[in-house]
Design a protein around this nucleic acid. Structure first.
Lengths: 142, 142
DNA sequence: GAATCAATTTAGAATAATTCTTGCTATTGG
DNA sequence: CCAATAGCAAGAATTATTCTAAATTGATTC
């Protein structure tokens, strides 16, 4: 979590971590909030939580940090319908199940060994960069 | 496409088709636009196209019609990230592949006999109401 | 340690898709 | 025809997100 000192940087003014990301206080704070409670908070949820540690942080900064974390693939952005985006620090490829009763979003793992092409009739020559699987329903107690 | 006359309706003021939907000129126009070019247009796209036939239709009405068509399951709403919603008259269960080069959205069929539970580790007792599968990538010519 | 300079943060304004409100029109059933 | 309900239009309102411009930070260089 500490800036790596480098004798000669091609990119002056930056001290980047392994992912090429400068870990500022704000980015660290935002990232920690996501790791602390993995309940898929919205940008605004994150904003309210991170203010405990960084009372002067602005909502725009939270958006900036989230964007940068997503770009650097430390965090995934999860969209359900047109609801506010939610953020998820689980980097394994996985889907999401939105329980309509409780509002809780559960991560859903793929069964081992499953390939997309086994399941979907992909257009020939399709190179998939990103997969998004969103389920909606309810958890019956039966 | 024509309202069904019914001698005694529980629902006064309505002449509904099989799906329980009153097929007004506007709804018909919007629906026909979707059937005519299955290229996943946005609400605004639909608005511009339907104006040929119904020059006085308003954008709000297009939104209303699309909403009502989606509610009655004649049309599916497709969301990619936080882009404007797109609309799709393909009622078979299917996913979408968004070609990043061309912007074209392709329908993607499931391979026959595939069950969600075969592929995903669903929470026990999960009753799935709706499945959304969105892929992003490119079509390489190789 | 001071100067430099790009990256980052901030506060608030701007944007844009969508929804809401209100008043009007159309259609239905009686 | 009448009363009731549904649907439509126009524009205002909402809201998540992005943009802008100015201030700050912090790594590197001097």
């Amino acid at each position: 979590m500490q800036a790596k000192p480098s004798s000669k940087s091609v990119n002056p003014g930056s001290a980047e971590d392994a992912s090429g990301l400068r870990m500022t206080r704000q980015r660290q704070g935002v990232y920690r909030v996501l790791l602390a409670e993995r309940d898929h908070p919205t940008a605004n949820d994150v904003f309210m939580r991170v203010k405990d540690k960084l009372p002067h942080i602005s909502l725009a900064t939270v958006y900036n940090c989230l964007e940068v974390l997503v770009e650097h693939r430390l965090v995934r952005q999860v969209n359900f319908e047109r609801e506010p985006s939610r953020y998820c620090p689980n980097l394994e490829e996985h889907g999401h199940f939105h329980d309509q009763h409780t509002g809780v979003i559960h991560d859903v793992k793929f069964k081992p060994g499953v390939q997309l092409g086994d399941v979907l009739d992909l257009p020939s020559g399709a190179v998939i960069e990103d997969v998004e699987i969103n389920l909606r329903g309810q958890l019956s107690l039966a």
